[in-house]
């Protein structure tokens, strides 16, 4: 009885010793950890990452928590360190909480990056940024001006009154407005992250300002909200809606004419660039200030801002009836 056990244990230990160096692969293993898995936006980034991995001959690991769980995200990164991946990019759920585990990764010689959302600013090697704040604001204003034929009154329906990124975009929109002297902003209203509330706010605006010609929906929920309000009020053709949102929510309004164009960036390209940048650093290269990089496989020419160690994907992307069907996020 006892001897059987002993033999079994011995066999186990021996075979484990034989198996253990099963790691060594010569391909780089590059991991991307999104805020959560299973939503269209990050699925799109995964698609880009996979494509880049195929093109560049690296292995792409895509894993993340099922909800936007901070502790789980850290645990997942820690296990990626154990697996011995070569680079880890993360879209952190908590920019500070991610710091210790990324420090640990860096100590082990892993290239650490943030992508989509920044965090651990003192630790990460590079932040892959989708677009600059000022350019998002400028582009939104330009698209509205074009749709309104450069004249008339318009309103902005923003979301949280204290949302830092939205307020920054609005600031740059107003800066750009000075180039369009025949356009006038009548009011800014707030609808929080709630499509229904955005519809109500926009319907009120349409009643309050009979000569309104345009509305900006500043966030991903208020943009489809104002477009729905224009549709419900029967003002398609008289009032035009635009804003910053995702194709899946805006598609019906591009089709019915309430929206001519809207603004975002391309998350597929963002995923592609993330993997490309990891490979670039793993190959021993350094990014340099002001250089525009040729990245085969994406539509834009990313550039580098040395002071913030930030690689910018490119100008924001404009979606209209010609391309809105090409994206499923």
């Amino acid at each position: 009885m006892k001897r059987n056990w002993l033999v079994l244990v011995l066999v186990l230990v021996l075979s484990l010793l034989l198996l253990s160096p099963a790691f060594g692969q010569d391909k780089y293993r590059i991991a991307f950890v999104p805020k959560l898995v299973g939503i269209p936006y990050f699925n799109a980034m995964e698609e880009g990452g996979k494509k880049a991995a195929e093109d560049l001959g690296v292995e792409f690991v895509y894993t993340g928590p099922v909800t936007d769980d901070v502790a789980k995200q850290i645990e997942i990164i820690d296990n990626l360190i154990t697996q011995g991946v070569d680079a880890i990019a993360v879209a952190p759920n908590d920019p500070a909480a991610i710091t210790p585990v990324l420090e640990k990764a860096k100590e082990r010689g892993i290239v650490v990056m943030t992508s989509d959302t920044d965090g651990a600013e003192g630790v990460r090697d590079v932040f892959v940024n989708q677009a600059l704040q000022d350019q998002i604001g400028y582009t939104t204003m330009d698209e509205l001006a074009k749709a309104m034929d450069y004249e008339g009154k318009f309103a902005i329906v923003s979301c949280g009154p204290t949302a830092w990124n939205l307020n920054t975009w609005i600031m740059y929109e107003l800066e750009r407005l000075t180039q369009y002297p025949d356009m006038e902003l009548v009011t800014i209203r707030y609808a929080y992250e709630d499509v229904q509330m955005a519809i109500n706010v926009a319907l009120d605006l349409i009643n309050a300002f009979p000569d309104l010609k345009g509305i900006i929906g500043q966030c991903s929920t208020s943009a489809p909200g104002v477009a729905e309000a224009v549709t419900q009020a029967g003002k398609i053709g008289e009032i035009v809606a635009t804003g910053v949102s995702v194709p899946s929510m805006m598609r019906p309004y591009v089709k019915n004419g309430a929206v001519k164009s809207f603004v975002l960036w391309n998350p597929v390209d963002l995923g592609y660039l993330t993997v490309w940048a990891a490979k670039y650093l793993l190959d021993g290269n350094q990014f340099e200030e002001g250089v525009e990089y040729e990245v085969p496989g994406i539509a834009t020419k990313p550039w580098y801002v040395a002071e913030e160690r930030m690689l910018v994907l490119g100008p924001p992307m404009v979606f209209d009836e010609t391309n809105v069907d090409d994206f499923d996020f």
Binding site: V37, T63, G64, P65, K72, E75, I76, N79, Q83
Partner: peptide, 16 residues
């Protein structure tokens, strides 16, 4: 099990 599944690269949705 959580550790094993993560190291094996099995999708998170299986963990719960």
């Amino acid at each position: 099990i959580n550790n094993g599944l993560q190291l094996a690269g099995i999708h998170q949705i299986w963990q719960l």
